[in-house]
Write a protein that binds this DNA or RNA. Structure first.
Lengths: 133, 133
DNA sequence: ATAGATGTTCCAGTCACTGGAAGGTCAAGG
DNA sequence: CCTTGACCTTCCAGTGACTGGAACATCTAT
């Protein structure tokens, strides 16, 4: 398979696939004309990567997960640990975003949004330490 | 005030303050020795920026908000629009993260986490389109 | 005089791509 | 045989918002 075909099959942009080769996540073979030639196993890896990335795993996590996937003697505990750490990171990000959301939605609600200059949003940004509402 | 003092007062790292000068968000004066000299208004701006950034506004949003803040003839509607767009972005990110969280926590839960190789997490990553649970 | 804290600039790296330029290769149609 | 268009190649630069570090100047206190 050429890169266009694996791109369609994996859902990953060709640019991304080349990048993954660059950083050593896949190692397609080369045809005589210089074109990359992907085996089924390469496509499989790329799909794995696409799915792991879509769950928010970092590239380094993906590298680890891929290595574990290919290690038939792995301990599932190792996989679980990677996933749990990532899960904790996600939870933290959600909490941060929810905090922002609470503050911002409160401010947006309080803002008239008309043609007058008075604006509680700007007032809040300008006066951080002040108690509000 | 020198950069160290405004750094302590604003809570922003000196590096960040220099960066903000680089991109034109603040324009401190210079003393004869080449040191940056910050006025109260500069510190005020930096605090504003720090707070806006902590609410997740992009640098470009911050630039807009700062301009609106300093425009006494602004319409609060303009401010509100910026905030609402940002709020929508936050809501989308939260939704994405919650989707990831749901999938991942399900998988983590299903994984024994022992020294055997069988692992539903890897199984899921390897078989994306398959129904699970 | 000197030590240590503070300041300066500039360059490079982060993360995971993404865009674009400049050019080689291939299959189909005239 | 030639051209057109789709596909492929490499390489360089940019994204966002800093952050780290090197190499050097300046200030403050002893």
């Amino acid at each position: 398979m050429n890169i266009g075909e694996v791109s369609r099959a994996s859902g990953l942009p060709a640019k991304t696939i080349r990048y993954y080769e660059d950083i050593g996540l896949v190692t397609p073979q080369r045809a005589a004309n210089g074109y990359r030639t992907f085996r089924d196993s390469d496509l499989h890896k790329l799909s794995f990567l696409g799915r792991a990335r879509s769950l928010g795993f970092s590239i380094e996590d993906c590298r680890t997960l891929l290595a574990l996937y290919e290690d038939r003697g792995r301990a599932s505990a190792d996989v679980k640990l990677v996933a749990q750490k990532h899960l904790a990171g996600i939870e933290q990000k959600i909490a941060e975003l929810q905090q922002m959301h609470a503050t911002l939605s409160h401010l947006v609600h309080a803002c008239a949004g008309d043609n007058r200059p008075d604006c509680p949003i700007l007032a809040d940004l300008a006066a951080p330490a002040t108690a509000k509402a």
